[in-house]
């Protein structure tokens, strides 16, 4: 009896979405270039993590927001095939538009119920210029939006950490403050390795014990270090 009962077997998809602020201020002091470099350097790390757990199908996308929002990588792309084209910065900070576009993609369908919780990484250096609250509501109205692992990175002192905290939705997890290129590289590496690894093989959690956005255990945060002379943002 060689036949196996049932239909097609499949690993569980894990959607990882970079949400990058490309407003004009990101062009100041090389922030956008640092972000491009940090994400490019993180790709091999993501691929290594994905290789370690073949039961999770890591699919990566990226959305950029400035004056409006646009998918930078629109198709969920196997991490082994993922390449990063440099972002450029200009315009304002329409974060709400990006949040609502991501919300559309987290609907079921196109998402499936059997997916692993998606990972959303929001990176911003400023204040939203559109109705971010509506975008955030649209995201949180989706079951996968509420259950996504939501990480935020604030670039520089001018970033609106209050808005980023609302995106995270859990007071126990703070936005990561990157005030220099090294810190940004460290945080990008952390989300693309430790967080991705945790999200790709999560254990069950009791529904009454999981804090909002914490249905996947968040690994120990990297040390941001004290404020230093290296801080340029």
């Amino acid at each position: 009896m060689n036949m196996r009962p049932g239909g097609e077997l499949a690993t569980r998809p894990l959607h990882f979405i970079w949400m990058a602020d490309c407003s004009g201020s990101m062009d100041v002091d090389g922030k956008i270039q640092s972000l491009n470099t940090a994400i490019k350097e993180a790709i091999p790390n993501m691929q290594a993590v994905a290789d370690e757990n073949p039961n999770a199908q890591v699919l990566v996308r990226a959305i950029k927001f400035s004056s409006g929002a646009q998918w930078h990588v629109s198709q969920p792309t196997e991490v082994s095939d993922f390449r990063w084209e440099d972002l450029t910065a200009e315009g304002v900070t329409d974060m709400g538009k990006a949040l609502s576009m991501v919300a559309d993609q987290l609907k079921i369908p196109p998402m499936t119920e059997r997916a692993l919780p998606p990972v959303l990484v929001l990176i911003s250096d400023g204040q939203p210029t559109d109705d971010y609250a509506s975008g955030l509501k649209a995201l949180m109205d989706q079951p996968w939006g509420r259950k996504a692992v939501r990480i935020a990175i604030a670039i520089g002192e001018d970033a609106d950490t209050e808005v980023l905290q609302k995106f995270i939705g859990n007071p126990e997890l703070k936005p990561l403050q990157a005030n220099n290129p090294e810190a940004l590289v460290k945080y990008i590496k952390w989300v693309s390795t430790a967080v991705l690894k945790s999200a790709s093989a999560p254990a069950s959690q009791t529904s009454d014990s999981a804090a909002p956005g914490m249905n996947v255990p968040i690994p120990v945060l990297p040390d941001s270090g004290p404020t230093s002379a290296d801080d340029v943002w």
């Binding site: 919780p117 999560p202 254990a203 529904s207 996947v216």
Partner: peptide
């Protein structure tokens, strides 16, 4: 409907 995204009801719950 609560059984979603690795969350489950459990014998250990109140």
């Amino acid at each position: 409907q609560r059984l979603f995204a690795n969350e489950t009801t459990s014998l250990c719950s109140e």
